[in-house]
């Protein structure tokens, strides 16, 4: 039997930008990511087992411990859990839901970056068209949006901290664009 294949991150070979005291960019650790699609009732049933109950309020994330459920659409949530046995977790979650639903493993489809620092919102606004003020985009808000020509999921996890999730093939583009937009903040 051959040896087990190792993981290779989509960020391998990419240099993450940083601006001292103003912005840090780190890769979110490997995680279980699931796309949940179904009715709010299905989401509520899942919540009972998963931990955080998926929000029925638009553009809001719920989290409990190291698990989170991000509202992406009225029948779509993005589930995050620490890395582990994705198939086992899915089986336990699905078993709790009677309603028709889809639970699809996208742990490798998406990757994440964490932008932290007083300039994080400004650097995001270099290519994201949303109002990222604390009132318009408070902590706990999550939505799909754009970073220039790439689709992203944006989740504000703290006053100066954002988690950005996107399809892995866009890693080079998004890291390059963040670096370009961060550059002027060094002055």
């Amino acid at each position: 039997m051959s040896e087990t294949a190792t993981r290779l991150s989509a960020f391998a070979g990419l240099t993450l930008p940083a601006v001292r005291n103003r912005l840090s960019v780190t890769v979110a650790p490997d995680a279980i990511r699931y796309s949940l699609r179904g009715s709010p009732a299905a989401a509520a049933a899942l919540g009972a087992v998963f931990g955080p109950v998926p929000s029925t309020t638009a553009c809001r994330a719920t989290s409990a411990g190291d698990r989170a459920a991000l509202w992406l659409g009225p029948d779509e949530w993005y589930l995050l859990a620490p890395d582990g046995d994705a198939a086992a977790l899915a089986a336990s979650l699905s078993a709790a839901i009677d309603e028709p639903h889809a639970l699809v493993d996208i742990s490798h489809r998406n990757v994440g970056l964490i932008l932290k620092g007083p300039r994080a919102a400004d650097v995001l606004n270099g290519a994201c068209p949303l109002d990222l003020s604390e009132t318009a985009f408070p902590v706990g808000m999550s939505t799909r949006t754009l970073y220039a020509k790439a689709e992203i999921i944006l989740w504000r996890t703290g006053l100066d901290t954002f988690r950005v999730e996107f399809w892995r093939s866009f890693a080079g583009y998004i890291v390059g664009l963040i670096a370009e937009n961060a550059r002027e903040h060094a002055v």
């Binding site: 638009a58 992406l72 659409g73 009225p74 779509e76 939505t143 799909r144 949006t145 754009l146 689709e151």
Partner: peptide, 13 residues
Amino acid sequence: MRERWRHVAGCGR
């Protein structure tokens, strides 16, 4: 005009 739009880079609806 009544038009259809899709919030494609949002909720997808």
